[in-house]
Design a protein around this nucleic acid. Structure first.
Lengths: 191, 191
DNA sequence: AATTTTATTGAACAGGTGTACAGTAAAATC
DNA sequence: GATTTTACTGTACACCTGTTCAATAAAATT
């Protein structure tokens, strides 16, 4: 077991300090020294647990993407994201999730931040698609490649949304996604 | 006019120095001091032109994405990327481009590098799609959102490719992309 | 060729980084 | 409760960062 109380206290202090400073300045301008000063933790101690400020932030981020996965497992709401034919605007949860944690995703999508967080989000969505679409087999199409395509396509919409300061409504994006995914499948001009 | 010879010389020296050091270590571990030492340029001078090592790299990157745009304007080869029905594996140029500059894209897609370069690539592809698909109007679908979706979907495939160390052939990816884009449009099991 | 403009230099400053190590204190273990 | 283990502290070091400013040298302009 590795739950030394000192470690827990230290990490908690660092987490809280980071959140405090994040209200004042952007992630890329926050120094390890400043976090440690606020957390009243020795700078050397920081290096016992993390190598960069970004690694500390990563712990938060993983908690948040865990919520994304959880929202897919809610028993009454669980649905596929992109089982095209069955796709219903009300069942898409991803844009809700992003809006819910808008505050964090503003950081994650800011241009000075390392690509790492992007990959964490990408992998999370890709895994959801991989599981959800296990049954759907297209001969000649690499399933994983297909999921990478779809997962990142959705993030493409999110990037656009972010660059417009999250001004579209979740409902609008859900409807747009359904329309885009359904292009070519039947009557293009709607019912 | 702003082509002071001194500026040109300084920038050239810094560019060359960066390329030299990039052969030895990764972008995120290269210090401004080291580049200046190699370029025999005063550190203060660096700050007259750039704020970070990343800004210097950005200049290279823009030259490279310019090649991407150029390859679409070659008179005999110019074709749309995603005019679905007409899409032919031989006409897709993007994967060729990435492979050609594999060396650079390994840097661009490494997880410690800032998101900025990702956005530069994303915007480049999105603009190509926007222009190429001007004529294609889907009522009820936001054209720009649609292009963001498609542009990033392609980058999704590239990310997958990168994470597999560019081991797929360009031809294979071209064929896969055509198959994925053509899902739902007619006979799903191929001709 | 002489003059003006300006890019570059070198030095200096306060702060941050990453690492090492001995000493301390707070846990876990007995 | 005493002992062992180990997380944390404080200090120190070499190096990097971002900025300022007067001095210099290399351009552009006349």
């Amino acid at each position: 077991m590795r739950t030394d109380l000192r470690v827990i206290k230290t990490k908690e202090a660092l987490h809280n300090a980071l959140l405090e400073v994040l209200d004042e300045k952007s992630l890329d301008t926050i120094s390890i020294s400043e976090i440690c000063r606020r957390a009243k933790v020795n700078r050397g101690t920081f290096y016992l647990h993390y190598a960069q400020v970004e690694d500390l932030f990563e712990e938060y981020f993983k908690e948040i993407t865990a919520d994304l996965a959880r929202s897919y497992q809610e028993p009454y709401r669980h649905v596929t994201v992109l089982k095209t034919k069955e796709l219903n605007p009300d069942t898409i949860r991803i844009f809700h999730h992003i809006e819910k944690y808008k505050h964090f995703y503003r950081i994650v999508f800011s241009k000075k931040v390392p690509l790492l967080y992007y990959y964490l989000l990408f992998e999370e969505i890709k895994q959801l698609l991989l599981k959800d679409q296990e049954a759907i087999v297209h001969e000649e199409i690499d399933h994983e490649l297909h999921c990478s395509y779809q997962a990142n396509a959705i993030i493409g919409i999110i990037i656009d949304w972010y660059h417009k300061d999250f001004s579209y409504s979740v409902e609008y994006l859900n409807r747009q996604l359904v329309q885009i995914v359904n292009i070519q499948s039947g009557n293009p001009k709607g019912t």
